[in-house]
Computed example of a mutant assay.
Amino acid sequence: MLKEFCAENFTDIPKAIEQGVKRIELCDNLTVGGTTPSAGVIETTVQYAHENNVTVMTIIRPRSGNFVYNDYELKIMETDLIEAKKYGTDGVVIGCLNEDGWLDEEALDVLIDRAVGLEITFHMAFDAMSKENQFKAIDWLVENVVDRILTHGGVAGTPIEDNFEHLKELIAYANGRIIILPGGGVNHANAQLVADALQVNEVHGTKIVSF
C-alpha cells in the first residue's frame, strides 16, 4: 500500500518519510484545503524527497474557496505549474470547475498541456460535482491522460467509512482506467481498513503516518 502524505510546507516531511511515506502531496495553507507552496518549499522538498526515493506531487491552487477560476487566476496557475516543473516536481495536483458544476475543460486543457511529462492528480474539486457529473468526469479525465482522482466520496467532514458505497461505485466505473485515490479522514489508524474495504493500493491523508 502506497501512503501519500498531504504536507503543509517542508516541516514534517523528513519525519513522514522516516515513517514510510512514498509520495507527498505538497501544499501550503491546509486549513483552507491547500494552496500552491512557494518556489523555495518546492525546490527543497523535491531535492530532499528525491534523495530518499520519494515522489512529490505539488498542488497548483491559487486561493481558497471554490474551484471556479477567472483568467487572471488561470494565468497564475499556469505560471506556478511551469515553476514547479522547473524545480523538478514529479507531478501536479489540479482541479478547475465552471459555474455549471462541470469541469472547466478549457482551463484544464491549458494546465494539462503545461504538465506534459508529469503525473497529474485531479483533486477534491471532484467532490464538488454532482454524482452524475462525477462519472462523466472520469471519462473526460481518462481521455485527457490524468493519472488519478483524489476524492472523499462524499461531503467534506463526513467519516470516509460512510462514503464507501459511492467510492466503490467510482472505482468500479473507473475500472483501472484511472486511479481513484481515497482521502479526507484517512489516517494511520484506518488506512489499512480503507485500503482493504475499497481494494485500493493508494491512500492519502494529512495523518497517514503517526509521529
Rank of each mutant, 00 (worst) to 15 (best):
L81V: 03
I138N: 06
I24E: 08
I149R: 05
L30P: 00
K75W: 12
F5D: 04
L2E: 13
L2A: 05
V92C: 12
V116S: 14
D100L: 13
I179L: 15
R177E: 11
E161Q: 15
L111N: 12
D104M: 05
R63M: 08
N133S: 08
D139A: 04
E105A: 14
M124A: 12
G153C: 01
N187C: 11
I120Q: 09
R114V: 15
Y48L: 14
H188D: 09
P14A: 01
E78I: 05
A16C: 02
S64V: 04
V56Y: 10
I180T: 06
R148E: 02
V200E: 03
D139I: 04
V56M: 13
G184T: 01
G157Q: 02
F135M: 13
D104R: 05
N53K: 13
V194I: 14
G153K: 00
E78T: 14
F5M: 07
E18R: 11
V92S: 04
Y87D: 06
E43D: 11
T79L: 15
A39N: 12
N190K: 01
K22D: 03
K22Y: 01
G117A: 12
V203R: 10
G40F: 03
A125Q: 08
L81Q: 10
N133E: 08
C27T: 02
P37L: 09
P62W: 05
N133M: 11
C27Y: 02
K168P: 07
D147M: 00
G40R: 04
V155P: 03
E165T: 10
E143D: 15
V142S: 06
L170C: 08
V110W: 04
H204P: 02
V116K: 15
V21D: 10
E169R: 15
P182C: 02
P37R: 09
R23C: 06
V142M: 08
N187T: 06
Q199V: 11
F135K: 04
E83S: 10
L193E: 13
A16W: 00
V93Y: 03
F10P: 01
I82Q: 12
G34W: 00
A7E: 00
V92K: 11
R63K: 11
P37Y: 02
E43F: 12
D196W: 11
L193A: 12
T55Q: 15
K85C: 07
K75Y: 13
A125F: 02
P159Q: 05
N175W: 05
I60A: 11
F10V: 01
L97N: 02
G91D: 07
V142F: 04
S130H: 00
L30W: 01
E161W: 08
E202W: 05
V155K: 15
N53F: 09
L108G: 09
D12L: 12
I60T: 06
R114M: 13
V110F: 05
A197Y: 10
T79Q: 15
F122E: 04
T58C: 15
F135P: 02
D162G: 06
D28A: 15
Y87R: 12
I60W: 02
E78Y: 14
H123C: 06
E165Q: 11
G95S: 07
L26Y: 03
S38L: 07
G176H: 09
